[in-house]
């Protein structure tokens, strides 16, 4: 196959480097325009197995807030995002919660956990 050049914007950090990627099929031959090593590995992943960090919220029972922000222990496959959100929407946690607590273990068998982004105290009194 003939090498093809593709353009990508790296999303690894807020710098947003504009990458030009020389590919041969799904093989990355060379990456231009990246300011650090992470740009090259991003390009590689983005073409082979694109992943994203996903953040959302889950319902809280008996907490000082009605919802708890959650995130992932590692980026998840892009194609799983919708399904992931459906999983997250079924969960209700009981306060108190600590930052880093696992809210869903090994979500969708991805090896990735959904974890709490902050501490959440329980509301003053129970009902």
């Amino acid at each position: 196959m003939k090498p093809v050049e593709k353009e990508l914007i790296c999303v690894t950090c807020p710098r947003g480097c504009r990458l030009r990627v020389l590919t041969d099929g799904d093989k990355v031959l060379e990456v231009f325009g990246n300011n650090c090593k992470r740009g090259a590995s991003y390009a590689e992943m983005e073409l082979r197995d694109p992943r994203r960090m996903v953040a959302s919220t889950v319902r809280v029972c008996n907490g000082e807030r009605p919802v708890l922000p959650v995130t992932l222990s590692a980026p998840i496959q892009k194609r799983l995002i919708r399904q992931l959100l459906r999983e997250i929407s079924t969960v209700t946690v009981e306060a108190p919660v600590k930052m880093g607590d696992v809210i869903i273990q090994n979500v969708l068998n991805s090896g990735i956990n959904v974890v709490a982004s902050r501490n959440l105290k329980s509301a003053g009194k129970t009902h």
Partner: peptide, 10 residues
């Protein structure tokens, strides 16, 4: 680290 806003605050 790549943190969500609430974790950075925490």
């Amino acid at each position: 680290e790549d943190l969500p806003g609430p974790s950075y605050a925490q």
